[in-house]
Amino acid sequence: MLFSWNLIGLGLVYRIFKKKNLSFDDRFSMTMCMAITMISPLIIALHIELLLPGSLKALFLIPILLGLLIGWKFGSLIKAPALLTSIYNGTMGGIMGTMLGAVLQNPALCNIPIESEAMMTANMYSLAIFTTFLHTLVFILSQINGQ
């Protein structure tokens, strides 16, 4: 179920990406670029962190690299300053999403009182659904602006 939410997010990313490829402006698309690359790597990193098993320690680099990749792809559409901004924001989003996912999986890291195992799973699902809602909201906004 989480994976389907993740796929919906990724599909929206690529739809907007193709659409933005046709029409650029100067300042306009830089703002859009910043907004998209701030939100989407965070949420995709959070979903990946929740999906992957926690035992594989070597996989912690994947969300960060994915954030960098998304930032690069969006930024390379426009100009050099936008490329710099979006790479920076994408990497930051990847790191913060990884952190949030780690806290959600193991609440004792942050001194949060643990209720039970089922409560933690419910927390994970509700936050994932909520972040997907935010993701779609931002993409709808940018789609309105892109036309």
């Binding site: 907004a35 989003g93 952190m99 949030l100 602006n145």
Partner: peptide, 22 residues
């Protein structure tokens, strides 16, 4: 544009801030 930027920044900081508080 400032609408979209302020909204995005509010979302980012809002997702992070309870973790600081704990």
């Amino acid at each position: 544009q400032s609408f979209v930027t302020g909204l995005t920044n509010g979302v980012i900081v809002g997702l992070m801030s309870p973790m600081i508080g704990t």
